[in-house]
Design a protein around this nucleic acid. Sequence first.
DNA 1: CGGAATCCGCCACGATACTG
DNA 2: CAGTATCGTGGCGGATTCCG
Lengths: 163, 163
Amino acid sequence: MDDGTQHAPLCTDSDGDYDVLQWDTREDCEVRQILDRVADKWSLLVIALLDRRSLRFTELRRKIDGISQRMLTVTLRQLERDGIVRRTVHPVVPPRVDYELTPLGATLHDTIRSLVTWTERHQNEIAAARAAYDTRVEAEKETADQEAAERDALAREVLAGRR
Amino acid sequence: MDDGTQHAPLCTDSDGDYDVLQWDTREDCEVRQILDRVADKWSLLVIALLDRRSLRFTELRRKIDGISQRMLTVTLRQLERDGIVRRTVHPVVPPRVDYELTPLGATLHDTIRSLVTWTERHQNEIAAARAAYDTRVEAEKETADQEAAERDALAREVLAGRR
DNA sequence: CGGAATCCGCCACGATACTG
DNA sequence: CAGTATCGTGGCGGATTCCG
């Protein structure tokens, strides 16, 4: 329809109380909705797998461990509707359907890829951070329980003295 | 713990039947889980908002339209646990808690940012693709209904002739 | 103000069965 | 093989209440 470079009716009004250069976070903003689709659990995997090649339905199903055929269908339909994936039906028996990225989808692939790469690259740091956090929380819980016990003991003493 | 550049116990064995250079998509792979967190609906917004500045709990709440305080709390806790966000409590009354990206979180911010930028930049194309898709599907439904009606009419004729 | 804890509705998703 | 259709449920997330 158009070249997609114009900013169009972006939701960038109201909320002028803080920095206007802040991108929009309003609930009805379309960017939010698209972001949800694109950053979806299954969408990420599908897009990442369709890197410069086409795959059949069953191939995708096999490569993505744990996905149900229903979710794969739904995900592919959404991506097709958004113009990110192209669906090609070969009228043969048995039926054969190929999926591949559109040019638009290809531009998204790079971004998705960098997200995946980041995750792979930092998974050790994250695992370490989680372990450290859990340890810290556990330790705080310990001391909290101790102090509670001490307060309890003190309270009992006071009560005993009064009586 | 370490510099995070080593690839460590990546889940890259088994499934040697196709290209091994394919990154892992197995359900139990840790990358999958981290990806889900990082690409989460609310996490994206929080990380994007904490660009080189710290924000208070209520500030984040106000800026992210539609988030409940529960989900903001949960999201922030997860990000803190993953070492992406730092939480700073100021012991004053009324309580004041600041959130900011850690160095690790800052490296993620760039990637998130590019995802958001991509979405902003292509939202018109996507909207157009959706409209085209919906139109196409609607048209196919029309013809399908017509053909069904024709078959129905033909069947009635045949039945009438038989009787 | 910044949570934690509890309750609960609802729908996203999986499992299953059936078609072209 | 590549779906659609239907049903059942687990858990995500909203609303509410209470606390430091």
